[in-house]
Design a binder for these strands. Structure first.
Length: 214
DNA sequence: AGCCAGGGTCTAA
DNA sequence: TTAGACCATGGC
């Protein structure tokens, strides 16, 4: 079976140097919520015109209903607006200052995020990695599907995390870049059928009618 | 035209 | 503890 290390190099060769989600922690938080069950392109389309207004000041100051209307194109606006407000309030408890979070252990930080309604495991982990630089491998639908196609029999998210944990340094930067590459890959290949002729990782994938993966 | 999507919550068995 | 309904909209 392919190693996490080799897979990273293949992805990097196929998609180039991954960029970071955003240097701004609050932007990461808002976009992590907006992208739930939603195409990344929809999030970008929504956020691009907002530019420098993606701040706690502007978003948090929006009158009731306006945030919902603003984010409607990303769907689930009622739920997502509530979650964004929850995250904004939580971050406000730390003065919107990431430095104040530095001494909090990752596990506790994660629990705090999970206690916010609408923040589940994946959203919490995205925020941990990209906003606060904590080493925690993000497992999402693309990750699961990619590993499935690679022929790895990994039953659950914990097993997947162990796969990536083995042989990789525990480094938030690496985890973040890795997840971004998986995202690029997942967005580029076909979603449904396991067969994708144009897949840049084709030689790595085990297809239903083939015996061997790699 | 209809089906599905990078998630999360709640309920029911 | 797990499966399924539900939330909303955009893209194909």
């Amino acid at each position: 079976m392919i190693t996490a290390d080799t897979l990273y190099r293949r992805l990097h060769a196929a998609y180039g140097t991954p960029r970071w989600w955003s240097e701004d922690p609050y932007t990461v938080m808002v976009q992590a919520v907006l992208v739930q069950h939603t195409a990344w392109s929809s999030v970008e389309k929504l956020c691009r015109p907002l530019a420098d207004r993606l701040t706690p000041d502007y978003i948090g100051g929006l009158p009731p209903g306006e945030l919902e209307a603003l984010i409607a194109p990303c769907g689930f606006q009622k739920a997502k607006a509530r979650t964004i407000r929850g995250l904004t309030a939580w971050f406000g408890g730390y003065g919107f200052d990431p430095r104040r979070l530095r001494q909090i252990p990752t596990g506790r930080l994660r629990d705090e995020l999970l206690s916010i309604r609408g923040v589940g495991a994946e959203t919490a982990d995205v925020i941990l990695v990209y906003a606060f630089y904590r080493p925690r491998f993000i497992v999402d639908a693309y990750t699961r599907r990619l590993l499935e196609r690679l022929g790895c029999g990994l039953p659950d998210d914990e097993a997947i995390r162990r796969f990536f944990g083995a042989g990789l340094p525990e480094d938030a930067g690496l985890y973040g870049r890795y997840h971004w590459l998986i995202l690029e890959h997942g967005g580029a290949v076909c979603k449904k059928t396991p067969l994708c002729g144009s897949c840049p990782l084709r030689r790595l994938c085990r297809y239903p009618d083939e015996k061997e993966g790699l």
